[in-house]
Simulated scan of single mutants.
Amino acid sequence: MTRVERPPLTADERTQLIGWLDLQRSFVRMKCTGLSAEDAHRKVLPTSPLMTPAGLVAHLRWVEYTWFQMGIAGVPDTGQTPWTEDGHVDAEMFVDDVPIAQLLDEYDEECRRSNATIADLSLDVVERGRPAEEAASLRFALCHMIEETARHVGHLDIIRELIDGVKGYTEPE
């Protein structure tokens, strides 16, 4: 995903929500640009060893999938998710053997699929397969995904600075 601009200041709600989410999504690839294979999997936080650039990209891909495909679109989980009831809660982050380029491509594809899935849906549509009192609206899912993605972009920003000193929101040279 190439970096996108902020949404227009006076755009409608849908344009604002998807625009802000797309902007945060674009920062994920930007923060990983130029990382070596070793650095993409480097564990720089001793108390959070799964929080590597590669692990965060993999996590964000699965969060996109669970909210927009499984939740909003109602796609059943047929075992394609990396976690199970008896598995590790962060199993999607076990990606030491997966190249960062592959993870970024899968993330970008999932983001495109998310946008296509929700393109014609009302922001008031709610998750499928949940009791009505527990189902979130698409509006909620978009707000949550902006928060989730931005939070992890912040993690990527700090991790990248710890790895090689690259900081900020410009493409590394």
Rank of each mutant, 00 (worst) to 15 (best):
Trp62Asp: 13
Met70Leu: 14
Met70Ser: 13
Ala73Ser: 04
Gly79Pro: 06
Asp77Arg: 03
Thr66Tyr: 13
Gly87Asp: 09
Tyr65Lys: 14
Gly79Met: 11
Val63Thr: 12
Trp67Ala: 09
Asp86Lys: 13
Ala54Gly: 03
His59Val: 03
Thr81Val: 15
Val63Tyr: 04
Asp86Trp: 04
Gly79Leu: 05
Gly74Glu: 11
Pro82Gln: 07
Glu85Asn: 11
Asp77Ile: 07
Gly79Gln: 06
Trp67His: 12
Ile72Thr: 09
Asp86Leu: 05
Trp62Asn: 13
Gly87Pro: 00
Val57Asn: 05
Phe68Ser: 10
Trp67Arg: 07
Met70Asp: 08
Gly79Trp: 00
His59Cys: 03
Asp77Ala: 12
Ala54Glu: 05
Ile72Lys: 08
Arg61Phe: 08
Gln69Tyr: 05
Leu56Pro: 09
Val57Phe: 02
Val57Met: 11
Val75Ala: 14
His59Ser: 00
Trp83His: 06
Ile72Tyr: 01
Trp62Ser: 05
Gln69Cys: 10
Met70Glu: 15
Ala54Asp: 02
Glu64Phe: 01
Ala54Tyr: 04
Met70His: 15
Gly71Val: 07
Gly55Thr: 00
Glu85Cys: 06
Phe68Gln: 04
Asp86Gly: 01
Trp83Glu: 05
Phe68Tyr: 13
Arg61Asn: 01
Ala58Trp: 01
His59Asp: 05
Thr81Ala: 14
Ala54Ser: 03
Asp86Asn: 14
Val57His: 10
Trp83Met: 04
Thr84Phe: 00
Val57Ala: 10
Phe68Leu: 02
Trp62Gly: 13
Met70Phe: 09
Val63Gln: 01
Gly55Val: 02
Thr66Gly: 13
Thr78Leu: 15
Gly87Asn: 08
Gly79Lys: 05
Arg61Glu: 07
Gly87Ala: 13
Gly87Tyr: 10
Pro76Val: 05
Arg61Tyr: 03
Leu56Ile: 15
Gly87Val: 01
Ala54Gln: 03
Leu60Trp: 04
Thr84Glu: 06
Pro82Phe: 11
Pro76Ile: 03
Trp67Leu: 10
Leu56Lys: 07
Val75Thr: 15
Val57Ser: 01
Glu64Ser: 09
Glu64Asn: 13
Gln80Val: 10
Gly74Asp: 05
Leu56Thr: 09
Leu60Phe: 04
Thr84Leu: 04
Gly55Asn: 02
Asp86Pro: 04
His88Met: 11
Gly55Ala: 04
Thr66Arg: 14
Tyr65Leu: 14
Trp67Ile: 07
Leu60Ser: 00
His88Pro: 00
Val75Asn: 06
Gly71Arg: 10
Glu64Val: 00
Trp67Ser: 00
Trp62Thr: 06
Thr81Tyr: 12
Pro76Phe: 02
Met70Val: 15
Pro82Cys: 08
Phe68Arg: 06
Arg61Met: 05
Gln80Arg: 13
Asp77Gln: 02
Arg61Ile: 05
Val63Met: 07
Ala73Phe: 11
Arg61His: 01
Glu85Trp: 08
Gln80Cys: 02
Trp67Gly: 02
Gly87Gln: 06
Gln69His: 15
Gly55Ile: 03
Gly55His: 01
Asp86Glu: 15
Gly79Asp: 00
Gln69Asn: 12
His88Thr: 00
